[in-house]
Computed example of a mutant assay.
Amino acid sequence: MNPFASALLAWFDRHGRKDLPWQHPRDAYRVWLSEVMLQQTQVVTVIPYFQRFVTALPSLRDLAAADEDTVLALWSGLGYYRRARFLQRAAQICVEQHGGELPREFDALAALPGIGRSTAGAILAQAHGLRFPILDGNVKRVLTRYLGIHGHPGQSAVEKVLWQHADALTPAERTADYTQAIMDLGASLCARSRPQCDSCPFADSCVAKRDGLTAQLPSSKPTKAIPTRDTVMLILRDAKGRVLLERRGPQGVWSGLWSLPEASDHDGAWRAAQSFARIDDAQALPPFVHVFSHYRLQVEPLLFDAAAAHRAIADNPALRWCDAGERAALGLPAPVRSLLLDL
């Protein structure tokens, strides 16, 4: 075993996380689900979502057979909803083509929707102990600092170098523990800000610590201004307290989720509201901003209370009146769910 892996595993044996819910049992379905949830999301946030998800859908076959609204409702709040759709589509492919199991062959596994090289490696390493490297955000941070690699890790040339090092350092023994260990190190001691270098097992061999570059590595992504978009969200509430929801189209953010109807301005909001229901007045609610990865959404909510639905709404499958209980069972964008809970 190479010296890096030996030192990392010795640290893991003393300080690593061994009680995460997807480690007991550490089967392929649970590892896969955790890996997808952990993309863009921290462990402390993921744990309750994971536990709720596997309670409702304990197996790959359960996920494949579930209604999409159920899957999105379980995912609601984690964001990046395309991950949930890819997760279910991959499960359905596994039922159709792989006997209801995630394949153990790397190429077949990596070919499934939403499973790239790193996620496939993590599943095979942690669930089956097979020697495959991983390269998630935590691992990139550890390797760029330890080896002193400059350049944004998302650039193809830099990423290629990092994959070479990740492969060379991954041991053939205790691969599952090593995979968890390097992720743990990146999430704890080698954190993005204020890394705890003095407690790190590589304090004497890390290039970034030696050269005072922990704040500069990994190199930042070139920045560009994030635009702001404005929208008016319509909250039409009828005499029974139900709110009108509209299923979003297949393109754009929150695709396929149930959300509130929107308009670009107040005039458009009134026209839209009048097309849905008979209304009298509107109340402006406090505006808020929701930040996506590529733009900021400035939201102005308008509440139309005691709205009486036009009969034509019943014939439109993309529109439905829902009470609080019904909304809880649907996939709603997190800011929309919070807005409705505050009413």
Rank of each mutant, 00 (worst) to 15 (best):
L285A: 04
R194T: 14
H128F: 11
L87V: 07
L340Q: 04
A168T: 14
F276S: 05
L330I: 06
W22T: 02
Q155I: 13
R192G: 13
D19Y: 04
G16S: 07
Q40A: 12
V44S: 14
A28G: 07
D167G: 14
P317Q: 10
L33A: 01
W163D: 09
D238Q: 12
P21F: 04
V161D: 13
G241Y: 08
D27L: 12
L285H: 07
R192W: 11
Q180F: 07
A111P: 06
V232E: 01
R337A: 04
G77I: 02
R30W: 06
A314L: 11
V36W: 02
R17N: 15
L63D: 00
L341K: 08
P58T: 09
P333R: 02
D27N: 09
F288Q: 07
P195V: 07
D265N: 14
D230E: 15
V161R: 11
C322F: 03
A181S: 11
P25L: 06
A166V: 04
L330W: 05
D230I: 12
I182R: 05
A10S: 15
D184C: 09
Y178Q: 04
R141A: 03
G137W: 01
M37Y: 05
C197H: 08
S76K: 01
Q39M: 12
W32R: 04
R271N: 10
F288M: 12
C206S: 12
A225Y: 08
C200V: 12
G268C: 07
A110N: 01
D198N: 15
F12N: 05
D13F: 06
D177C: 04
I47S: 11
A157N: 09
Y81R: 00
A203E: 10
A120V: 03
G129S: 05
Q251I: 15
F202M: 00
Q216K: 11
W163L: 00
R26F: 10
A277I: 13
Q51Y: 11
T70G: 07
D305E: 14
Q283T: 15
A127S: 09
I182Y: 05
P218E: 07
D280C: 12
L332Y: 03
V299R: 02
G137K: 08
T45W: 08
F106P: 00
S59P: 01
L285E: 08
D342Y: 10
V46Q: 05
L340E: 03
L341P: 08
A64E: 02
W22K: 01
E96R: 14
R131N: 10
V253Q: 07
R85F: 07
A273W: 00
A110R: 06
A329H: 09
A176W: 07
